[in-house]
Design a protein around this nucleic acid. Structure first.
Lengths: 152, 152
DNA sequence: TTAAATGCAAAGAATTTGCATAACA
DNA sequence: TGTTATGCAAATTCTTTGCATTTAA
């Protein structure tokens, strides 16, 4: 059984709206609460990377009583469901944003297999490279050469 | 003037041994202390990514009185000097390791220019990809396609 | 001698957890 | 009604900082 406050964490895919996610959540045994709806609304409002504290601020603008621990618990849940991506930057707080479906590729130099991986994986790298070298990664032509699990 | 406990932080390059770094440090107005020598010795012993706490443990095996705050202060200094790289993984503690000179490439899809960038930039990405997909990036064939500063 | 480095303790920031209460389904 | 979710406070983990003391040069 899942521990308290955590729904079945199989990936939740194909969502497009706040209500989509909430419905998926309910189908998995979770509950639709005001805090969850407000958090998702904040996340859907824009795709910027925001800290738990920033998201809490946005939620609290509507519902001042929502505690930051509730934000953390719900973010953990959404990360587990694949709805949200978490990124740890520098020494600062983790940032969260809706996971996107764009992707990069892992190309095996041995068998040529191409594995799609979520574009988010490269997000931080892309930002760093742009900053330091003025080099813009082409997200649609992003490929990494190496050896796949099968060939190793 | 640099604040207390911090030497001139221009990059310190071309070091190969613990003593190299210590000499460079002294030339910049820093001092050679037992704690620094032990920390560098630990870092040079292997290139694994280790947390401040793990490094403190190795130093304390020789000199039990060295405090973790001294480890943190010296690591900060070495990072500033370019001798050590710091990586923030997951939610856990930062990890440190000697900076290496190996590199990857940024290939411009327009002019074909190839820019070398320190391999460390890809370190975290490589670890993540290996973990999640079992895919091993070839560090010598790591190339990223995009558009260079000049062509943008 | 004197500025830099250290030890120690305390503060800080980010996140997690325990538990009683509230509220979805 | 029976869990699940929440609020609140306290605990944890990692890191930084203030200050008196020590020490390298």
């Amino acid at each position: 059984m899942a521990k308290q406050g955590q729904v079945n964490d199989l990936p939740l895919t194909g969502f497009r709206t706040v209500e989509d996610v909430l419905i998926g959540l309910r189908e998995r045994g979770g509950r639709v609460t005001p805090a969850r709806r407000l958090l998702l609304t904040a996340l859907f409002r824009n795709h910027a990377h925001r800290s738990a504290e920033e998201l809490a601020g946005e939620v609290q603008a509507q519902a001042p009583d929502v505690n930051i621990s509730t934000i953390y618990r719900n973010l953990d849940e959404l990360v587990g469901l694949g709805v949200v991506d978490r990124t740890h930057i520098g020494g600062g707080p983790a940032t969260y944003h809706l996971s996107s479906s764009t992707h990069g590729h892992l190309v095996c130099e041995q068998c040529g297999t191409m594995t799609e991986v979520p574009h988010e994986l490269f997000g931080e790298l892309g930002a760093t490279i742009r900053e330091r070298y003025g080099f813009a990664i082409d997200p649609h032509r992003f490929a990494v050469i190496g050896r796949c699990a099968a060939c190793r």
